[in-house]
Design a protein around this nucleic acid. Sequence first.
DNA 1: GATTTGGTTCGAAAAGTTTAGAACCTAACC
DNA 2: GGTTAGGTTCTAAACTTTTCGAACCAAATC
Lengths: 101, 101
Amino acid sequence: MASYDLEHPAMTDVELTDVLFALSDPARLAIVREVSEGPLSMAECGATNPALPKSTKSHLMKVLREAGIVRNEPEGRGRKLSLRRDELDERFPGLLDSILR
Amino acid sequence: MASYDLEHPAMTDVELTDVLFALSDPARLAIVREVSEGPLSMAECGATNPALPKSTKSHLMKVLREAGIVRNEPEGRGRKLSLRRDELDERFPGLLDSILR
DNA sequence: GATTTGGTTCGAAAAGTTTAGAACCTAACC
DNA sequence: GGTTAGGTTCTAAACTTTTCGAACCAAATC
């Protein structure tokens, strides 16, 4: 897969508890920290854990995407990941800052 | 039970992901919101959900306690619950504020 | 147009969490 | 000292989440 669009929730539908849950896993939190430095492809991200099967990584991403935290869009042969930072900051002021600090 | 001491983790041992996990459940988050208004007994707290069996409530509390979020100490016949607010604020500045807001 | 690369989805097994009844414990009150 | 009120712990069943191989898909490259 590469070019179809995946579902992203509207930020107004994102619940605080879903965000907290998504970030409560160390592997997912690590991914978010990486992505917070700037957009990345799947391949670049998680280089910290190279042995991770791609289906597992894809699933971690899905949880983050469904919680409204990351955007995942087609780019060339692959996919670009980015943090939905501004939207999140507006919906949950200060939350991401205090978590990523 | 009423008077023996339960284990509370040292705040330096509390991991961010544990805190996030504990708060990612709506019932637990509701309890924390209540307790954030001031100390409470088990009986007073969760009055919003009176049908909740006491073993279930006790378990929710245990998760919050083990995550370093609430203190649970004997008081008279019952137990007093309180938020470990200052310690949490020091360890994770701004986190509780942004979640409880 | 065949192959390679980068990635998703499906399905099933393993692991972890939640829920609640029953047994139990202790302080307070009579 | 018996009873009651307030809570914890144990245990087992139900449910959710995690993990990962296999199958699949599409864009890019040859």
